[in-house]
């Protein structure tokens, strides 16, 4: 398992799906560990009742069917499949509506889905998903990207309420790949995946959705920033180490 995770840290993130299925076939005995520890690009299905697209993940799956957050129906239909309690479903519906607006404001397109389910210790778990195709043939407003995919997975464990205080534990993963291609500068692909955690104790007076939403918004901002500034920056630094830009060379070799 350790070696498998080691490989996932090295294989180019754009090949995550292939790598994961290869590992699953080599290590069938670790399949549940692999599926829970390796995040893979999100898949989408169309809700046959509402006509809206929804995102598939382990959290809305039962057997080979996936529950849509819009109609609450499993696709393909499945009898006796688990459902959140009516109370939690109400929060789920609300969360889906609000999160779709949040998504539209930050992503100018894309698809989002929120799933919730009760966990063993009186709390619940919520999973917020966003998938955005930012390519010029997809939802890329500015048309810079030949290929551009952003998948965000936010899983929040919400603890039981104790004296109006609730413990929230958020684990977020962002996977992205972007490709630009033009005659003068050739093709450039940056792909990456990072995962971070954040825990907070918050008062429930503002409601769960408000607390979870703020945490997700803060986390997404941080992840975007570190991908952009730190991770992409480091790859650029590497390029400049390999072949320093001309100004630097001239500074070092004033005679040439």
């Amino acid at each position: 398992m350790e070696a498998a995770m080691g490989l996932m840290r090295r294989i180019p993130p754009k090949h995550t799906e292939t790598a994961l299925s290869a590992l699953l076939s080599l290590l069938p005995e670790h399949s549940s560990d692999l599926l829970s520890q390796v995040d893979q690009p999100l898949q989408v299905l169309c809700d046959m009742v509402s006509g809206k697209e929804f995102i598939l993940c382990e959290y809305n799956r039962d057997a080979d069917s996936y529950r849509s957050p819009w109609s609450n129906m499993y696709h393909p239909p499945l009898e006796d499949a688990p459902q959140p309690s009516p109370e939690l479903r109400k929060l789920e519906v609300e969360a889906n509506e609000v999160f779709a607006i949040y998504r539209d404001q930050y992503y100018e397109g894309g698809i989002s889905s929120v799933y919730m389910w009760e966990d063993e210790n009186e709390g619940f778990v919520a999973c917020f998903l966003i998938k955005k195709d930012g390519s010029k043939t997809g939802h890329g407003r500015r048309g810079y990207l030949e290929e551009g995919a952003w998948d965000a997975i936010h899983v929040i464990e919400v603890g039981p309420e104790e004296e109006e205080i609730v413990h929230y534990c958020l684990t977020s993963t962002v996977m992205l790949t972007l490709t630009t291609d033009n005659e003068s500068s050739g093709s450039l692909n940056l792909s990456g995946s990072i995962r971070r955690q954040m825990s907070m104790k918050l008062s429930v007076s503002e409601g769960h959705l408000c607390n979870m939403g703020k945490m997700i918004e803060e986390m997404e901002g941080k992840l975007r920033n570190s991908l952009d500034q730190v991770y992409f920056g480091k790859t650029n630094e590497m390029v400049c180490t390999l072949r320093p830009p001309a100004e630097l060379v001239q500074m070092k070799l004033p005679d040439t």
């Binding site: 840290r9 754009k14 650029n236």
Partner: peptide, 20 residues
């Protein structure tokens, strides 16, 4: 020309660029 870079501190980010 082909340039590759991999940064993997708490994550996995790779650059793959080519030009002819």
């Amino acid at each position: 020309m082909q340039v590759g870079a991999h940064y993997f501190e708490e994550g996995n980010v790779q650059l793959d660029a080519k030009h002819e």
